[in-house]
Design a protein around this nucleic acid. Structure first.
Lengths: 159, 159
DNA sequence: GGGACTAGGTTGCGAATCGATACCTATCAG
DNA sequence: CTGATAGGTATCGATTCGCAACCTAGTCCC
């Protein structure tokens, strides 16, 4: 990726700041992970994560506000509220996995548990990687940043 | 992913907390993005991101300490220091892209710029997704969490 | 060599955020 | 009615953030 012509001083618009606005706080990803793992209730998050109640309340509210979690009061026990991932929240799975996988590979060294598998054959998913249009795995020197207007048009049939 | 047998109360060990320890602060990902985009110097980060100088100094120090950025004093102008991504830092690219892509899709709606392309054909990379062992794209209902000991062994030849 | 300038920080201080703990309000079970 | 449970608030001290001013090498130019 040294292939960049000029340093591209203008980082310009990018979804990253927006994503960080929703997910940037320290506990947000951990709450999300807990959601992915099937936890739904305030007390479950609290005791699993050991987070302070006021912080948890405020993070849950923020995640709900951003449409990442849905807040569903339970009709059969009106003390209870279920927090469940929305589609938008679910769409954070690749980001969460990529981060987790990085931590596993470069920080802890120990394989995470539980593991996400394809339920067809129960084999673990592939590591999250950067792939080319045609599926090749791309590494450092295969990559290049360009402005959208310089992107090769997709000639559908082309080869 | 409702396929989970029991809610897996024990989230157990996972690389995520470790990753967040390194990258969990608000500016860390933005500094990283700037690095990916070819910025190398303190003043460049500062003026590009608009971050306070003391915060920038402390984030850079932390990223260096975690081995995500390397700090290289320049021999030909000894006032200057270059911060460059290490391999470990580079390995955060999928996480950064996944987050950015999520922000783009679910928050801003506008395509990010610059765009990362395969330098072979200049076509944009694929979106970051969860893939099965064999490359199929997996969605919500194809996924399942299991404990590592219950994972189907990789019979190499199998089908 | 001397003065101006530049790169990369550090220091101080007020404002916002975090975290632990205690408390509150519905609801439910017996 | 009584006690326990779920999901929060309120309070308060400890951190962290963000702005601005300042500092220190090293460089540039004459």
């Amino acid at each position: 990726m040294g292939k960049l012509r000029e340093p591209l001083r203008e980082l310009a618009e990018c979804g990253l700041p927006a994503a960080l606005e929703a997910m940037g706080e320290r506990w947000s990803f951990l709450i999300l992970r807990a959601s992915f793992n099937g936890l739904h209730h305030f007390e479950e998050f609290q005791s699993e994560l050991g987070i302070a109640r006021n912080i948890l309340a405020s993070r849950l509210a923020k995640l709900v506000e951003h449409g990442i979690l849905g807040r569903h009061p339970m009709p059969e026990d009106r003390r209870k509220v279920e927090y469940r991932l929305t589609d938008k929240g679910f769409a954070l799975l690749p980001a969460m996995l990529a981060l987790r996988q990085w931590g596993e590979r470069w920080e802890t060294g120990i394989p995470s548990s539980p593991v996400l598998v394809d339920d067809r054959d129960r084999k673990p998913i592939r590591p999250i990687e950067v792939l080319a249009h045609d599926g090749r795995v791309l590494t450092k020197n295969d990559l290049m940043w360009v402005l959208p207007e310089d992107v090769a048009r997709d000639a559908e049939a082309a080869e």
